[in-house]
Amino acid sequence: MSGEQPFIEIKRSIAGGDFAIAGNISSETKTILQQTGLPPVFIRRVVIACYEAEMNVVIHAYRGTFTTQIYSDRILVVVDDEGPGIPDVSLAFQEGYSTAPPHIREMGFGAGYGLSNMKKCSNQIAVDTRVGEGTRVTMVFYLNSSP
């Protein structure tokens, strides 16, 4: 990943707590990936991971930016937020671990599967976080390699 330019870059902002539009960035990403003619199985895993990352900002953070870069052999997604950060990242990756409050759980979020879904769907995932400041999730999806 040197100085190579992506042939498509999409940059969007995410509003924390806005459930009515939550998921729209992932939908838009899906449409763009479909238009580029990528295989449905590949699109599926990118889109699942995007949704989980987008929702985590909506649910757990205050605001964020969502950047997708499409290269010939891979897709890079970077989701950056201002928020509380994650004190224990390995705990956060455990299925079933969630700090989502009751009113969020009532909506069907907070199963604690998001980060584990992202990990299963991507080829590489990195979570950089600072408690009290925010979190950056970086995911790479290679076109011709399953995760």
């Binding site: 998921g23 729209n24 939908s27 949704y51 069907g108």
Partner: peptide
């Protein structure tokens, strides 16, 4: 569920 995010999930 009947909140708007179910539609987002359906579309995806």
């Amino acid at each position: 569920h009947s909140h708007p995010n179910i539609v987002a999930v359906a579309v995806l």
